[in-house]
């Protein structure tokens, strides 16, 4: 951790939603650091709170409690004006390239919008040059400038989203499942592009995904979430070679591998994720865990260091 400057510190972040049935604990007391120029993979299945975490960090949703410290400033305490200024640096790339672009705007209008809105470049011609530059950067052919998003395929649309995210003084991007809606061959193109841009522009990413093979390929550190809780976090290498939490182990073994060499026994979990509404004070994974003991059903395990820079929230360790 000492080797690199920390860009983002998330401390005891909570986000609860009020529902008719009670409080939905979407994000429940999570803490992590993000180093400058690195990628943190946020992994988990649907409903684990990973996307909510991303949106709360960007203040697209207001957190219920906790601190989000970006470059020394607590984002949660910024005034609307300061927040708008900060938005030039922090950006998001969405999962669905079909609903994240305004269907009534052309490609160049979409990429131009953030520059115009934040009055970054006032001169029309110069702004237009910047748009073309961005299109080149993300590998969008210039002739597509005047097309509408629905005329393009998913891969190209995702490139528009990326160009838009880079249009400002971007330093930090939350990538919310940016490739899960794409075909495999296009997925690889976009992953490579994101990696290349990170190197070129020194970007810092939070990479949210349910696809463990993608996250392993892409991230430096990985945090695994389950029902709003952060249950394990370590460097990617450590997590994949030495998973500790039973859920992480099951998750890793459940991925269908495109190879004929069988790697270890599959752990098939029983049951399904339990309700995030008014959860009881226990290990959220206890009802599916093959190793659950009484203590797991009685109290919540804290996040503890199990090895060097390897944290896990499990009573068994």
């Amino acid at each position: 951790m000492k080797d690199k400057e920390v860009l983002l510190q998330v401390r005891n972040l909570k986000k609860y939603f009020d529902t008719p049935k009670g409080k939905l604990h979407a994000v429940d007391d999570i803490t992590f650091d993000l180093r400058k120029g690195k990628t943190l993979g946020l992994v988990g299945e649907s409903g684990c709170g990973k996307s909510t975490t991303g949106r709360v960090i960007l203040r697209l949703l207001e957190a219920t409690d906790g601190e989000i410290i970006y470059n020394g400033k607590n984002i949660r305490e910024l005034s609307p004006k300061e927040m708008r200024a900060l938005r030039k640096e922090i950006q998001i790339i969405f999962q669905d390239p079909f609903s994240s672009l305004d269907p009534r705007m052309t490609v160049s209008e979409i990429i131009e919008e953030p520059i115009k809105l934040n009055k970054l470049i006032r001169d029309r011609k110069k702004r237009f040059e910047r748009v073309l530059e961005l299109m080149d950067l993300v590998g969008l052919s210039r002739r597509l400038m005047n097309t509408y998003p629905h005329e393009l395929d998913g891969g190209r649309r995702q490139r528009i989203g990326i160009a838009r995210a880079l249009a400002l003084d971007t330093k930090f991007i939350v990538c919310d499942e940016p490739v899960s809606a794409l075909d495999v061959s296009i997925q690889a193109q976009i992953l490579n592009l994101l990696k290349e841009l990170q190197k070129k522009l020194g970007l810092t990413y939070i990479f949210i995904t349910h696809d463990l093979s993608v996250v392993n390929h892409f991230s430096d550190d990985i945090a695994v979430m389950y029902l709003g809780k952060l249950i394990e976090k370590a460097s990617a290498e450590e997590l994949f070679s030495n998973p500790v939490h039973p859920y992480t182990k099951a998750l890793l073994s459940a991925i269908p591998r495109p190879t004929l060499e069988k790697t270890g026994e599959k752990i098939i979990l029983k049951g399904e994720i339990s309700s995030p509404i008014n959860p009881e004070d226990n290990c959220r994974f206890a009802n599916r865990c093959p190793y659950a003991r009484d203590v797991c059903r009685q109290s919540e395990p804290p996040l503890r260091e199990s090895g060097e820079n390897h944290f896990v929230a499990c009573h068994l360790f």
């Binding site: 495999v184 690889a188 992953l191 093979s213 390929h217 890793l252 495109p258 790697t263």
Partner: peptide, 23 residues
């Protein structure tokens, strides 16, 4: 072959992705 090379290899995180170009 292109399909195989496009999939991130979960057991070898350093492996480079070689996407199929174009559409």
């Amino acid at each position: 072959e292109g399909l195989f090379l496009s999939i991130p290899n979960i057991d070898d995180r350093k492996a480079e992705l070689k996407p199929i170009r174009g559409l």
